[in-house]
Simulated assay, not measured.
Amino acid sequence: MTQHIGTPPTQDDTQPHPAKPAQLTVFQGRVADRNPLGMAGAQRMGQALAQRLGLSPQVVGTPRTPLAAPWDVELNAARQELEELARAMERTLQRGQVPITTLGRCAAAIATLPMVARHHPDAAIVWFDAHADSNLPANSASGYLGGLVLTGAAGLWDTGLSGDLRLAQVVLVGARDIDPAEQALIDSGTLRLVPPGKDLAQRLATAIGQRPVYIHLDCDVLEPGTVPTEYLVPGGLTLADLGEAMTALAKNAVVGLEIAEFQSRWPEANTEASPDALIDALLPLLSKICPGV
């Protein structure tokens, strides 16, 4: 059964939760969407994960028409559902479960990351993304909310949500479209970058050490054409690269996984997209979270 989370909390929120190792959450809210394919993609990915893992997903938020607006307009419009997402994440962590979350857009992580950092301050936040997503409103050329996520989650600008993340926790993986202010954070050592290329999994293992890991996967970290996603940045990871990275990460304690930016259709051909190959690449990690899958 799918449980839909809204305000006020449903009756199920006050009842004992089944003894599952993980909680699957599907976020359907609109956050910095320019098209509806991410919201639909989060639903499709969530359904596929539910079948693979034997989990009953909870749904947070309701799909709405994209705004394609500046960051502050998007944030204000999404605030209520982002607050609901943050509460759902915190309840999962308080129960001692591992969150597995599907997000339409990376911008929704502005609600999830502070909760993870609050409960797992020693965890490495492993951010798979073609972009560094660490601009500030004052230096963002695009004014896109998705490019402000890490700094917002770290409280470097006021999101109106929590800011418990420390940028020192973040390990960027696969980033290659990096703005000057973001590069300055990398050059100063504030953010650590594991760029795409040879021996990625080995370099990632060195970067995370023995720390617990929380993984954020933006599908645009992959080579364009691997799965449908809004942004296409050449020089990305293959599914084999991703699988090797997941194998390396699974050697550590895994405290959560979120998947963003999987679009439900291939826009050029207007055909439906399957998440199965991507989930196959994630199996080393998913098997660690949910043994026996």
Rank of each mutant, 00 (worst) to 15 (best):
T2S: 14
Q3T: 04
H4V: 03
I5H: 10
T10C: 03
K20R: 00
K20M: 00
K20T: 00
Q23I: 08
L24Y: 13
T25W: 04
F27N: 03
G29N: 11
V31G: 02
V31I: 05
A32H: 15
N35P: 02
G41W: 15
A42Y: 15
L49R: 15
G61Y: 11
T62E: 15
T65I: 03
P66Y: 15
P66K: 11
P66D: 14
L67Q: 13
A68E: 04
A68W: 07
P70G: 05
L75Q: 07
N76L: 13
A77E: 14
Q80K: 12
E81S: 07
L82H: 07
E83D: 10
R87G: 00
A88E: 08
E90K: 06
R91G: 00
R91D: 01
R91V: 00
L93A: 01
L93V: 01
G96E: 01
G96C: 01
Q97S: 06
T101S: 02
T101H: 04
T101F: 06
L103Q: 09
A109K: 15
T112Q: 03
L113C: 02
P114K: 01
P114N: 01
V116M: 05
V116T: 04
R118T: 13
R118M: 14
H119P: 05
H119W: 15
H119D: 12
D122H: 14
A123N: 14
H131I: 09
L136H: 15
N139G: 02
Y144D: 03
L148V: 02
L148R: 05
V149H: 03
L156D: 09
W157T: 01
G163A: 11
G163W: 09
V171N: 10
D177C: 13
D179N: 12
D179K: 15
E182V: 00
A184C: 07
I186E: 01
D187R: 15
S188L: 07
L191K: 14
P196C: 04
L200A: 09
A207T: 11
G209S: 07
G209E: 10
Q210W: 09
Q210D: 09
L217E: 00
V221R: 14
L222W: 08
E223D: 13
T226S: 07
V227W: 03
Y231D: 10
G235C: 08
L237F: 14
L237E: 11
D241H: 09
L242S: 07
M246E: 05
L257P: 04
L257I: 10
E258T: 03
A260C: 10
A260H: 03
A260S: 10
Q263A: 08
S264M: 05
P267M: 04
E268V: 10
A269H: 09
N270S: 14
T271Q: 13
P275K: 14
A277T: 11
A277Q: 14
D280T: 15
D280H: 15
L282I: 08
L283P: 08
P284W: 02
L285H: 07
L285V: 02
L285D: 02
S287F: 12
S287N: 13
K288L: 11
I289T: 02
C290I: 05
